[in-house]
């Protein structure tokens, strides 16, 4: 168990202890929410883990780096950014996927672009965003977010 996992579990346990000492009913309610979201997420957890397993077992590092590695360059970053914008997988699960791609030779910029567009841009929630906040604001936010994601990716590649 690494430090991050220990810390996160420590925070969760401390939080729960405080919650139970303050308001037992509310604490139980949050545990129920936690359980429900955990079970709800399980199938996608398994899907992502199996995809990672197949990816690392069958696709060679050279193939991965050709599409999302240094050789793919700007086109690769833009492509991965677009995939991230359209895909609708829980952000929490994109990190293990990203880690497995990095392990296999994907570039930092491609990974950063993927995670950033995936979280910032919601293609599926866009109609709702337009309805609630208006076309101008929703389109500006999602459009500029894409540009930002690419910029963040390029800066991260330069620094890391």
């Amino acid at each position: 168990m690494n430090i991050t996992a220990v810390t996160i579990n420590g925070i969760a346990v401390t939080g729960l202890l405080i919650a139970f000492s303050k308001d037992k009913d509310k604490a139980i309610k949050s545990l129920k929410i936690a359980g429900k979201s955990f079970v709800g997420m399980l199938p996608m957890v398994f899907v992502i883990i199996i995809i990672i397993g197949l990816l690392l077992g069958f696709v060679s590092a050279t193939q991965i780096s050709r599409f999302v590695g240094e050789q793919s360059g700007m086109v690769g970053i833009l492509l991965v950014g677009m995939v991230g914008a359209v895909l609708h997988i829980p952000a929490l699960l994109s990190f293990p996927l990203a880690a497995s791609l990095l392990e296999k030779g994907a570039s930092v910029s491609a990974i950063a672009a993927f995670i950033t567009t995936l979280t910032m841009i919601g293609t599926i929630t866009l109609p709702l965003e337009i309805k609630e906040l208006g076309r101008k604001m929703a389109l500006l936010r999602n459009g500029i977010s894409f540009v930002i994601a690419i910029l963040i990716a390029l800066i991260m590649e330069a620094i890391l």
């Binding site: 996160i8 969760a12 309610k29 936690a34 979201s37 955990f38 883990i49």
Partner: peptide, 29 residues
């Protein structure tokens, strides 16, 4: 493949329940 599956599964299970509990606490409070 099975080795990778297992490694990632363990890593997820070490943090996911805790993350969900933190999420639940904030959702209620």
């Amino acid at each position: 493949v099975i080795n990778t599956l297992w490694d990632y599964f363990i890593e997820m299970m070490l943090i996911l329940p805790a993350v969900m509990i933190i999420l639940g606490l904030f959702a209620v409070w």
